[in-house]
Amino acid sequence: MTTQNQASLYVSEKIVQNVKTITFIRSSMSAITGSAAGILGLTGYYGFIFYGITSLFTSFLIWSAKAQAKPGLYFRNGLDVWTEGVFGGLFSYVLFWTLLYGIVHVYD
């Protein structure tokens, strides 16, 4: 039995739109959690662990509220909802973490 071509199985504009939504959510959350990490005074490993925890929390929110616990409907691989955009958010997390840590804890 012949299988359908990948290109005709998915609507590519919707995939792109979903990636955009996810990127928006993740980058905003990275900025906020970075600021929170700076305020709380986390350093070193604790900071990165905090990023891992909050990105898991964000993924859980996306999975439950946006994808209604059925990620296979919205992403090619259902597990993508936990990993998509996490690395891109890391840089802005570090930026805001450094900024707020500097402002709140280091300066007089």
């Binding site: 980058s27 905003s28 900025a31 570090v94 930026l95 805001f96």
Partner: peptide, 20 residues
């Protein structure tokens, strides 16, 4: 180094502000 940090970190902020 603060300049470099900003360079990498502001990219996603630009995507937020200015769209894709």
């Amino acid at each position: 180094s603060w300049y470099f940090l900003n360079l990498f970190g502001l990219r996603s902020i630009f995507t937020l502000l200015l769209g894709e």
